[in-house]
Amino acid sequence: MRLSPLTSLTLVALALLLAAPWVVYPAFLMKALCFALFAAAFNLLLGYAGLLSFGHAAFFGGAAYVTAHAAKVWGWPPELAILGGTLAAAALGLAMGALAIRRQGIYFAMTTLALAQMLFFLFLQAPFTGGEDGIQGVPQGRLLGLIDLGQPTDAYYAVLAIAALGHLALYRIVHSPFGQVLKAVRDNEARARSLGYEVDRYKLTAFVLSATLAGLAGGTKALVFQIATLTDVQWQMSGEVVLMTLLGGIGTVAGPAVGAFLSVGLESALATSGLPVPAVIGAVFIACVLVFRRGLVGEIGARLKIRL
């Protein structure tokens, strides 16, 4: 049987990830996987619809709050709490997206950033989020009544399954007829419009799908790390997911995940170095934009002339 480069690489990556907890701390892996899913969801919008959202922290962090609140205060089981957070992100995505797609390009980016900042202030003031402390000590529970999320290794495989399913969903969306229309909109909006496509509906659908999966990532992260805080809804978080995607490769299937692992790895390496982490991240950002716009996966794909 001959496998495509992408399929074989996916299988290799899965094998590595299945073996990884024997080599790397599960906590690091879970964090990286949550961000990988977050970045991949973001990339659906930037890479395939050409829309730069600078407000995706709202969905990631918003879902984290809802999941944490549902699990801790309402006592929901983990799968329902995550589902609740994900649906909340979807609803938020619908509202924010409907406003933001009324403007294009650079205005779209500024609009999403401003709307996300408004949500940040709302979360800061809302009584249920716990203000500066956030929601701490979220009970992990047993996923589907079976998997004890309190056990690091078990929790890791659960997160891996969620991230893999999320990626699979994204892959299917991108390669569906819907995904083809999105790319047509990205490449030439006026042309897509003149061909009779309702461009705004496609953009909004992509926005909601992206927000939903970003919410899935945020809700999962809140549950396995037992905490939801303002960090996850701040504008810096919106910027970080842009960087992960850029670092790995905008518009590639594997890029955002690779970028997320690089970025989380870089941050944990820097944490003990005494260097100012945001400043280093900013410098990486500038370097990527100036000389490395295709990102790691995009660059490798272009060198080897394969689609990754």
Partner: peptide, 25 residues
């Protein structure tokens, strides 16, 4: 960045903002 998608200008200056703010912090 001239001639590229203007979003790259936004991203590069975002990086610069992080560098300046991070250093002063």
């Amino acid at each position: 960045l001239a001639g590229l998608d203007p979003l790259y200008g936004l991203l590069a200056t975002f990086g610069l903002a992080l560098v300046l703010e991070g250093t002063f912090r």
